[in-house]
């Protein structure tokens, strides 16, 4: 029986296997080892939540602790990628993107285009996102939509341990800059993961459940909520198809459109704020390309347009819930 490990272990294993396979892969970020070069314990942290722990001693000289300066070390990672390394840089919280965004969107994302296709920038930026950790407004946002807007970046949003490993291996082997979004609440999620290395291609949605009544497209942690809601709806006789695009850029439009052509109903579940989100993007796609198939208005289940609250009670209300998704499914199904 296949072995079960956590999402966090799957990410660690992908890094470990790719570092073993390719000497040009390096890992860098704040406390990625923790205490390296200082007196006392080395590899004390392995990143703020321990995701990179153990790599420092296994791959000497290739796990770098950086200063608390995202503008500096993200820029260094992009530069190293231009010069033959395959850096995996950890931006501790995606909420800190603001201080290093130029290096990402106006440098890394543009080099191939600006240099006539002659430059490649094989950098991976791993970053933690999402609410539910009681970490307040500045450490809880869900910003994959911002990167998705930018041509030249690939954006990966794994929802489970199997996908996390295979997509991170693909990200490291990819020759373009990749933003790899890790939901902090998913780190403890268990799942079957092969011990061998494997890569999952970008732009290929995973269909978790097939059904004829309602299509649900969900991202990251919301995929698991959508599956739960679909199971609940099934008990009421409503058969949902649950689609996890896995990458928001490139996006597997065909799988989404083919499903809506079959079901005629769409619910999009997205933890981001609703304006200019993946939810609105998928709704736009379907309204434009599958309008004739729609039997009901498209339902969007998203966070409200407010910062993530620090209050536990309010944060729980902020994140889309299984009950809200189920209500949207039923509403779409019952629309006349």
């Amino acid at each position: 029986m296949a072995r079960k490990i956590t999402y966090q272990q799957a990410i660690n294993e992908a890094l470990d296997q790719e570092m073993s396979r390719d000497p040009s892969v390096i890992v860098m970020g704040e406390d990625n080892a923790g205490g390296a070069g200082a007196p006392g314990e080395e590899d004390a942290w392995g990143g703020v939540l321990g995701v990179t722990k153990g790599l420092f001693h296994k791959h000497p000289g290739r796990v770098l602790d950086t200063p608390i300066s995202e503008s500096g070390f993200i820029g260094a990672a992009v530069g190293a990628a231009c010069n033959g390394l395959r850096p995996v840089a950890e931006l501790m919280f995606v909420d800190f993107m603001g201080v290093c965004l130029d290096q990402i969107f106006n440098q890394a994302a543009k080099f191939k285009y600006m240099f006539g296709g002659k430059a490649q920038t094989p950098v991976v930026i791993r970053t933690m996102y999402g609410a539910g950790f009681r970490a307040a407004a500045q450490h809880s946002q869900c910003l994959y939509n911002v990167f998705t807007h930018i041509p030249g970046l690939k954006v990966v949003v794994p929802s489970n341990p199997y996908d996390a490993k295979g997509l991170l291996i693909q990200a490291i082997r990819d020759n373009d800059p990749v933003i790899f979004m890790e939901h902090k609440v998913l780190y403890t999620m268990q799942g079957e993961v092969p011990e061998e290395s494997y890569a999952i291609p970008f732009g290929e949605a995973n269909v978790l459940r097939e059904g004829d009544d309602v299509t649900i497209v969900a991202f990251g942690r919301m995929v698991n909520f959508a599956s739960e809601a679909a199971a609940a709806a099934q008990k009421k006789g409503v058969h949902c198809e649950v689609i996890d695009p896995r990458t928001t850029s490139p996006l597997d439009e065909d799988t989404i459109l083919e499903s809506v052509e079959k079901t005629g109903r769409l619910v999009v579940v997205d933890e981001s704020n609703p304006r200019c989100s993946m939810a609105s993007d998928i709704a736009g796609l379907v309204a434009q390309k599958a309008f004739g198939a729609l039997k009901a208005p498209i339902e969007l289940v998203t966070a409200p347009h407010v910062p993530v609250p620090f209050s536990d009670a309010l944060e729980d209300l902020y994140v889309p819930s299984v009950a809200r998704i189920e209500a949207a499914i039923i509403k779409a199904k019952e629309y006349k």
Partner: peptide, 16 residues
């Protein structure tokens, strides 16, 4: 089934 196809795809993607 979808699951059968997915299982074979997962196998085919393993290194080696």
């Amino acid at each position: 089934t979808r699951q059968l196809v997915d299982d074979i795809l997962k196998y085919k993607r393993l290194e080696g």
